[in-house]
Design a protein around this nucleic acid. Structure first.
Lengths: 247, 247
DNA sequence: CGAGGTGCGTTTGCATACAGTTCTGCGTTT
DNA sequence: AAACGCAGAACTGTATGCAAACGCACCTCG
């Protein structure tokens, strides 16, 4: 495949697929990231520029740029040491998960400190929102009703709130680059998440209380603990099902 | 400038300027980063692809990619909200410095924890190296002899050692992207660094002792404190000399 | 029969051409 | 004289062509 592609050379001319907003490069970046995160590009498989370009109805240039971005953020690795890199989708390993979760926990810890340094008038509505999200999680935990996707989204929103109010521009960008990668692992983890959900709810409750008390160290610690526990739970699942999952 | 540049269209054909190793894109990335870090591209000024391409003797394509990398890492920002980004060299502000130092301190804290978890046989030679570097700093501090560049390099090597032995691949990459940005601020700071050098030496000593004792929390805390103190000192200088420095 | 070399195909990386958009500067009009 | 509008230029973003390099397979020689 991806051999003689003289079929749609200027197919994107009539602006069919670029209907979204933003530039093609950003579109390509998001699309390819989605493909990787959702597992449509399996971990360990190698990436073909021309193939993706055709799939996204654009030229190789923006696709190329997007792949390089993804490489820098860790979604893509280069096989073979130097020169003429052959890009592969980053595999999912236990060590990588541990490192990834440690990093994001640490970053969110910083953001959590930022939240505590807001005046109390601003902190109050934030805790209200956090509590509302955690309520929903708690409700799902007791009712065993929600499907994994919903749980994931609520949890993600919970953490994003902290970033939104506690992180500066740099930290926000950094987090935005790393956070989606946790979704790759989360999908592995989804199977066994529901039974541990109450633990997560409790950890979140600890975080909220720390925010309310305004104790920076406690917030930092609680956020890191939440992620580290997540890494532990994830590591357990990986031990059972094997690395790289069953995509 | 950067107007009608029909002079050296295929000048790079004979492989004159690409004599180094690696691809052009990586070369461009390093070169432009150097230009920014060393202040030859002043903070706040806007970046012209064509101009840089001519300066580096290559086409706009790799330059373009490099600029996008730099943007993602925070060396470059886009002026004008969305669409048709006009890139500018990231300005140096007090808030940014604080955020930057907090982030890198946190990341090195993780690496520090990693170091403490090595078996003692491997940890010993590391502390020896750390001590040797700190000796040199201490010597300079008492003799008031070294020039700022040397001090910077020794301090950088100190922190890089911790990354080298305590960080995984992800953390190493992340740190490698962020660390050079501290140099931009360090140059601002250079003027008043020598008189505070003994403080830095003491902080390093604390770090080393924490590593020796194998106390993860202590190492983490000590590293973060070192960076936070640095940010404080830097903030003081910025208050005096004004933002954006006197490049 | 095995091992090493060579040649071809595929793919990446770079350069350049082209189109769209925005900013600037000058002229005209009120 | 000042302000608004138009025209022109310049810069960014994208597409495509071209060359070199990597990998694989086949063929040949020991």
């Amino acid at each position: 495949m991806a051999t003689a592609k003289s079929k749609k050379p200027a197919a994107a001319k009539n602006g069919k697929a670029k209907a979204e907003h933003g530039t093609s490069l950003i579109t390509a970046f998001r699309e390819i990231r989605e493909l990787i995160v959702h597992g449509r590009l399996s971990p360990g498989t190698w990436i073909l520029e021309a193939d993706l370009a055709e799939r996204l109805n654009m030229s190789r240039t923006p696709v190329r740029g997007a792949i390089h971005w993804l490489q820098r953020e860790g979604y893509v690795l280069e096989h073979r040491n130097v020169s003429k890199s052959r890009m592969i989708v980053a595999p999912l390993t236990k060590e990588d998960a541990n490192e990834l979760y440690r990093i994001i926990g640490s970053l969110e810890g910083i953001a959590g400190r930022g939240v505590t340094q807001l005046p109390e008038g601003q902190r109050k509505p934030i805790t209200t929102q956090l509590r509302a999200l955690n309520e929903r999680l708690s409700h799902i935990a007791s009712g065993q009703s929600g499907h994994p996707g919903e749980i994931f989204e609520i949890d993600r929103d919970f953490h994003r709130l902290i970033i939104k109010y506690g992180a500066g521009p740099r930290l926000t960008t950094l987090h935005g680059g790393i956070e989606p990668q946790t979704e790759r692992y989360w999908r592995l983890y989804a199977s066994s998440i529901i039974k541990d959900l109450h633990t997560s709810v409790q950890e979140h409750e600890t975080i909220i209380r720390a925010v309310e008390s305004g104790d920076s160290d406690a917030v930092d610690t609680a956020l890191q603990a939440n992620w580290l526990r997540g890494a532990d739970r994830l590591g357990h699942v990986i031990d059972i099902f094997g690395e790289r999952g069953s995509w």
